[in-house]
Amino acid sequence: MIERIETGIAPSSAPINDAVRAGKHLWLVAIAEDPVSGEIVAGGIEEQTRRCLDNLQIALEAAGGTLRNLVMVQIFLVDSADAPGMNAVYREYLTVQPYPVRATVVVKELLAKKLRIEITATAVLD
């Protein structure tokens, strides 16, 4: 049984979810969209990474979890030069071992042209 987690971030009119749960497992996606305005945040990779991780945290909390529940993170960047800035912000949020497994991939582009980063993640809830 798959359950949609209501985070208040993804538009309810779109055929997408930003978090779903099946049992103790949670799958999430986060982009650099301000949950209040619905706009992509202004700024560079640091601001967009921070917004993605804040949105990921909001979704995890809506499901009863925290960043400590993450087991896998996939990061999609449009420019490999953004990796150091993304990593600096990522280190601010994920500070305790064991860290989740992570893959970082550089892609040609993301669907929303202003996006420099998109994050997907898997978590296991207690």
Results as ranks from 00 to 15, higher is better:
11 P>I: 09
15 P>L: 05
16 I>T: 14
8 G>S: 10
35 P>S: 09
26 L>M: 06
18 D>P: 01
36 V>W: 05
17 N>G: 05
12 S>D: 12
23 G>S: 00
33 E>Y: 01
10 A>K: 10
8 G>K: 10
14 A>N: 07
21 R>C: 08
36 V>R: 13
17 N>Q: 11
32 A>N: 06
20 V>K: 01
21 R>M: 13
34 D>A: 02
23 G>C: 01
22 A>T: 13
16 I>A: 10
11 P>H: 15
22 A>L: 10
19 A>Q: 05
36 V>Y: 08
19 A>D: 04
31 I>G: 13
12 S>Q: 13
35 P>H: 05
13 S>A: 14
9 I>R: 01
17 N>A: 14
38 G>T: 09
38 G>P: 12
32 A>M: 05
28 L>M: 15
9 I>Q: 02
18 D>A: 02
38 G>D: 07
38 G>N: 08
10 A>M: 15
22 A>P: 01
26 L>K: 05
15 P>V: 03
32 A>W: 00
14 A>H: 10
30 A>V: 00
38 G>A: 05
32 A>H: 01
30 A>N: 00
34 D>L: 02
17 N>V: 09
37 S>T: 15
31 I>N: 03
9 I>F: 01
39 E>C: 07
27 W>H: 12
35 P>K: 03
28 L>Q: 06
21 R>T: 05
10 A>R: 06
37 S>A: 09
19 A>N: 04
34 D>F: 00
24 K>V: 09
30 A>W: 00
16 I>K: 04
20 V>W: 05
9 I>P: 01
25 H>G: 03
11 P>T: 12
17 N>T: 13
21 R>Y: 08
18 D>K: 01
12 S>G: 06
25 H>W: 09
23 G>P: 03
32 A>G: 10
13 S>L: 11
8 G>L: 13
29 V>F: 00
24 K>E: 14
23 G>W: 07
29 V>D: 01
24 K>F: 08
28 L>Y: 11
35 P>W: 00
25 H>F: 09
18 D>T: 00
30 A>L: 01
31 I>L: 01
33 E>F: 01
17 N>S: 15
12 S>Y: 06
35 P>L: 05
14 A>P: 02
24 K>N: 15
9 I>C: 03
8 G>I: 10
15 P>C: 08
37 S>E: 08
31 I>W: 00
33 E>T: 14
22 A>K: 08
